[in-house]
């Protein structure tokens, strides 16, 4: 899954549950066409969008379900995943690691 698709889905999930985040554009193809695009990647999660630990736990579960990854040592908003962009990077890295392991098993 490429970063663009991961990004779209992460933003959809976060905007659905964290209502201080502006909703995503009706179509990702037209993002930013009519006005200055909102910089989702740079958006810091805590405390700007939320500092409610229940919110964070809930979106973490939704992201885990959507991408088949686990937030093991840290959750979105914690150190290393302060912004939405960093959450996307984390998920992309986890997916790539999982694919690499799968490919190696198939080779062995």
């Amino acid at each position: 899954m490429d970063r663009k698709r991961i990004r779209e889905e992460v933003i959809e999930i976060l905007a659905n549950k964290l209502h201080k985040l502006p909703p995503p554009p009706p179509s990702w193809e037209t993002e930013g066409e009519d006005e200055e695009p909102f910089d989702y990647d740079a958006q810091v999660i805590k405390p700007e969008i939320t500092d409610n630990h229940l919110d964070i736990a809930e979106v973490a579960m939704d992201l885990e379900d959507a991408f088949g990854v686990n937030f093991e040592e840290a959750l979105p908003g914690d150190a290393g995943m302060e912004s939405i962009g960093k959450v996307i990077d984390y998920i992309q890295a986890r997916i790539q690691t999982a694919h690499a392991k799968t490919a190696k098993k198939e080779d062995d």
């Binding site: 630990h53 229940l54 736990a57 809930e58 579960m61 379900d65």
Partner: peptide
């Protein structure tokens, strides 16, 4: 268990 909502208790 890991899928039980964090909002269950409240």
């Amino acid at each position: 268990p890991s899928r039980v909502s964090p909002f269950l208790v409240p």
